[in-house]
């Protein structure tokens, strides 16, 4: 909570949420990060549909998937469900 947040005296009735959660990055929760192999990827978009975080985006302009590592929690559902095994979960230090 930053100091810019409203105090209890300034809140409206029932304390309605007023900030979109896309400002809250959950990407630092992860241990493993997804790595895509674009040669294997057939853009079936299974990963996009099954990701609980909306952290995999499809870019129609170049027809590829992109990970939003700012939100990815590293659960590995995409890697587990990928029919062509184009996604692998790796430790960030292994990738470097």
């Amino acid at each position: 909570m930053s100091s810019k947040d409203k105090t209890w005296k300034e809140l409206g009735i029932a304390a309605v949420c007023y900030r979109p959660s896309v400002g809250f990055m959950t990407g630092d929760w992860k241990t493993y990060m997804p790595i895509r192999d674009l040669e294997k990827c057939t853009t079936c978009l299974t990963c996009v549909m099954l990701c609980p975080e909306d952290a995999i985006r499809f870019r129609p302009e170049h027809g590829k998937i992109e990970f939003d590592l700012g939100f990815c929690k590293g659960c590995g559902i995409c890697a587990n469900e990928c029919p062509t095994k184009a996604i692998t979960m790796k430790l960030p230090e292994d990738e470097e």
Binding site: P20, S21, V22, G23, F24, M25, T26, W29, K30, P52, E53, D54, A55, D68, F71, K73, G74, C75, G76, I77
Partner: peptide, 9 residues
Amino acid sequence: TSGHRACAG
């Protein structure tokens, strides 16, 4: 949208 605080997976 993203940024919800559900567990991973």
